[in-house]
Simulated scan of single mutants.
Amino acid sequence: GVIADIGPEVERIYAVDDACPEGSGRFVEQHNHDPRVRVLYNPENRGVGGAVVTGYKAAMSEGIDIVVKIDGDGQMDPRLLPLFVRPLQRGQADYSKGNRFYRPESVQGMPPIRLFGNAVLSFLTKLSCGYWNVMDPTNGYTAVRTCVLAELPLDKLERRYFFETDMLFRLNTVRAVVKDVPMDSVYAEEESNLKISKVLPEFLSKHLSRLWRRYFYNYLIRDFNIGTLYSLFGSLLLVSGTVFGAVHWLNSTHSSYPATSGTVMLAALPILIGIQFLIAFLHYDVSNVPTEPVSQALEGSAQDALGSTSP
C-alpha cells in the first residue's frame, strides 16, 4: 500500500528487506507490479540505520540526486513527498525531516507518552546536535541530497533507534542545513519495539558523547571564537566558585563558625558570573546554526572540476 501511494515524480523505489523473518522482500517481489521498485536484501538484521544506509548506498551508486526515506508501516503519507523534496530542489536545505509538532492539530492523535518522550528527546538533540531550529528529531520521514551523503561516514552511523539523531549530529559536522517539514502521523494498532526504560540510559550516554564531540570539533578544533571563551571561562568560574563555597561550607559546619559575608560573596560571585557566561555561550550556539546549504558548494566544486578536465 505504501508503494502504491508513491507518485510518478519518483524515479526509483528501494524496498529494503533487513533480514525480515516475515519475508517482506519476497512479498514485495511477488505482489509488486511497479517497474521502479528494486528490493534490497541485508544478509543480517542491521536495524533501521543499517537498512537506510543500504538504500542510501544503492541510490548513490545509481546517481540519484535526492533520496527520501519512508517507513513501510503506513504512518508516513507518501503523498507528502514533494513537500520534503521542495526545500532541497530550491537550494534552501541539504536535509529535510518531518515535524509532527508544528500544528496543534497534528498532535491530537499522538499517544501522550510519545508526545512527552519526543519533547524531551527534541531538547536533548538540540543540545547534542546543535540544530536548535528543528523539532521532533526521531521523525524518520526525511529527504537528503546524495552529494551531502557522500561527505558523511555512512558506515559509522548508528544502526538502531539512535540513527535519526546520529544523522543530525553527522550533518552538523559538515555544516549541512536542516529544515523541518510539518506533517501528520497516523497511529493505528501497531506496537513499537522501542522500550523507553531500556533505551533511556543508552540515549543519555550517546547524547552526552555527541555533545562533547560537537563542542570539541566546533569550538576547539575547527574554530576558536567568542563562544569558546564564554564556555571556558564560564565553566572555570562555575567550578571554582562551587568548590570554594563547598570547602568553606564544610569548614564552617565542622568548626561551628559561620562563614563571613565576604567568603559567601567570593563563592557566589564566580558562580553567578559563570552562569551568565554559559548562558551567553548557549545564545551564541543557538545563533550558530548552519544557514548556507553545503550542497550548493559541493555541486559548484563538482562543476568546476568537470570544467577543468573538459577538452
Rank of each mutant, 00 (worst) to 15 (best):
residue 211 L to P: 04
residue 199 V to L: 11
residue 209 S to M: 14
residue 203 F to Q: 08
residue 223 D to S: 12
residue 208 L to T: 10
residue 215 Y to V: 09
residue 213 R to H: 04
residue 222 R to A: 13
residue 202 E to R: 14
residue 202 E to F: 15
residue 220 L to F: 11
residue 222 R to C: 04
residue 206 K to H: 08
residue 205 S to N: 13
residue 218 N to L: 13
residue 216 F to D: 05
residue 221 I to N: 12
residue 214 R to Y: 01
residue 230 Y to H: 04
residue 225 N to G: 03
residue 222 R to S: 09
residue 230 Y to V: 00
residue 223 D to P: 02
residue 224 F to S: 05
residue 201 P to K: 05
residue 223 D to G: 05
residue 230 Y to A: 01
residue 231 S to V: 09
residue 208 L to E: 07
residue 223 D to R: 13
residue 229 L to Q: 03
residue 225 N to Q: 03
residue 223 D to C: 07
residue 226 I to W: 04
residue 202 E to G: 11
residue 209 S to L: 10
residue 231 S to D: 07
residue 227 G to L: 00
residue 206 K to Q: 10
residue 222 R to H: 09
residue 216 F to Y: 09
residue 225 N to D: 05
residue 227 G to Q: 00
residue 226 I to V: 05
residue 222 R to W: 06
residue 208 L to K: 10
residue 227 G to E: 01
residue 208 L to G: 08
residue 215 Y to C: 08
residue 218 N to Q: 14
residue 213 R to A: 03
residue 209 S to E: 13
residue 220 L to A: 08
residue 204 L to D: 05
residue 226 I to T: 03
residue 229 L to R: 03
residue 224 F to C: 12
residue 218 N to G: 08
residue 205 S to I: 14
residue 218 N to E: 13
residue 226 I to S: 03
residue 207 H to W: 14
residue 219 Y to A: 02
residue 215 Y to L: 11
residue 199 V to G: 08
residue 215 Y to S: 09
residue 199 V to M: 11
residue 216 F to Q: 05
residue 202 E to W: 15
residue 227 G to W: 00
residue 203 F to E: 08
residue 207 H to Q: 14
residue 227 G to R: 00
residue 209 S to R: 14
residue 216 F to C: 04
residue 218 N to Y: 08
residue 213 R to W: 01
residue 230 Y to W: 02
residue 225 N to Y: 01
residue 212 W to M: 00
residue 211 L to I: 08
residue 207 H to N: 10
residue 211 L to W: 12
residue 229 L to W: 09
residue 203 F to T: 08
residue 215 Y to Q: 10
residue 216 F to R: 12
residue 206 K to D: 06
residue 218 N to C: 09
residue 207 H to I: 12
residue 212 W to H: 02
residue 226 I to Y: 02
residue 210 R to N: 10
residue 202 E to C: 13
residue 217 Y to L: 15
residue 201 P to L: 03
residue 227 G to I: 00
residue 221 I to M: 12
